[in-house]
Simulated assay, not measured.
Amino acid sequence: MTKKSLQEDSWGMGKKMNEDIAKTILVVDDNESNIDMLLAILKEYDVIPSTSGEDALALIKEESIDLVLLDILMPGMDGYTVCQRLKNQPETQNIPVIFITAKSDEESIEKAYDLGGADYVTKPFKPKELLARVKVQLKLQDVLRELNFLATRDSLTGIYNRRKFFQLAEQMYAEASDDLYALMIDIDHFKRLNDKYGHHTGDIALKTITTAISQTLPESSIFGRMGGEEFAVLLKAGDETRAMEIASLLQQKVCEIPINTDGGSTIYCTISSGMACKKGDSTSLDSLLRQADSALYKAKEGGRNRSIFRDV
């Protein structure tokens, strides 16, 4: 698994940043002696050097970058332009940029901040100052990621909360063709489980089951908790047969997982699900989810521990 996928995966089972992984810093400077100096100062980090703005932008598309140290005065594309392009792209706009420059006049510094720079360091470098500024920006990024995690994830299970699910699902729905499927999932007899074994065991069951589902879904899926024991999934599958195979696999994985109760016993849970495809009378995400929910209702009426595809 890559560092990027450790930060956030598509199906929404939130993984916080692994602090044991070295942060990756992109150093952009056309002067190779400056790069050598920065490599020595930043030896505790994974540093990727670049000698031009064009190369830096290409590298950022391929690598997961935590911070950019960016020279302002470079031949061809200068640092201001590189920063502006980074801040104009949703996938790179949150990467902090520290300008490294020999220019110390107020106009240059103001422009650096106006273009989205997080900080600046003047040449010649003062190693301790540079390292301190780098650490501050990386720490700030960790805090922002943590806040984003708390704002977008269900506090118990770690998967997407309802608001974040719909935010991502609306975009996925708008971009997808008729290979998009909605899956509504309900844990069977969950109230009975809570009443018999207690809410702590119920919480363990929720976390265990959502982990199993998250690990089984295709990586491009969006998985969120709608409330209580009900969940929603948006996923892509080649056809109805493949989509139902995925639903059946989820059922199988969940029913095989032992859940330990507070009393020391082991119990097993099952799930019911309803599925619908983006076609026919599905004119919106809400419509698609309602169709899947209707199929879920039929699955529960039919005895639970099953998945039903909603016929259009």
Rank of each mutant, 00 (worst) to 15 (best):
S294Q: 03
K191N: 03
L183W: 04
A237T: 03
D179C: 08
D203R: 00
N194M: 00
E175W: 04
K278E: 08
D188L: 12
D293E: 10
L289Y: 11
S273G: 15
D203E: 08
A212Q: 13
A237C: 15
D195S: 02
T283G: 13
I257A: 11
I204M: 11
R192C: 03
G238K: 09
S265M: 10
H199C: 02
P258S: 12
D188H: 01
I267R: 00
A237L: 10
L234F: 06
S294V: 02
T210A: 07
S287W: 02
Q251V: 01
T201S: 06
G227Q: 12
M226C: 04
R290I: 05
I257P: 01
A276T: 13
R192T: 00
A247W: 09
G202N: 01
L250P: 14
G224N: 05
M275W: 04
I246D: 00
G280D: 15
L285I: 11
I204V: 15
I213H: 14
R290Q: 15
S284Y: 15
D239G: 05
E219S: 12
F223Q: 08
I204N: 10
S220M: 14
S284W: 07
L193C: 04
G274T: 04
S265Y: 06
G227F: 13
M244C: 05
G198H: 00
D239L: 10
K207V: 12
L217Q: 08
V254Y: 03
A237K: 09
P258M: 04
V254R: 02
H200W: 00
L206F: 06
D281W: 03
S273Y: 01
A243V: 08
M244H: 09
D195Y: 02
S177G: 14
C269Q: 00
S282T: 14
G264E: 10
I267E: 01
K207I: 09
T270P: 10
M244F: 03
C255Q: 12
D262W: 02
C255I: 08
G280C: 11
I213S: 02
D203M: 09
K236N: 14
T211K: 14
L285D: 15
S282P: 07
P258E: 07
S272N: 04
E229V: 00
A292I: 05
G263S: 05
L249K: 12
A292Y: 06
L180R: 10
D188I: 00
S220D: 14
R192K: 10
S214D: 07
G263A: 05
Q252G: 06
R192A: 06
A295C: 08
I204A: 08
D188E: 04
P218T: 09
S177D: 12
K236V: 15
I257Q: 14
Q251S: 07
A243H: 05
T270R: 04
S177P: 09
F231G: 03
G274W: 03
G264Q: 14
I259E: 03
Y268C: 04
T201K: 00
S287L: 05
M226T: 07
K279S: 12
D262R: 02
R225W: 12
D286P: 08
L180C: 02
E219H: 11
P258I: 08
S265E: 14
L285V: 06
L206P: 05
D286I: 14
L217F: 12
A212E: 13
G228R: 05
K191A: 01
A295N: 13
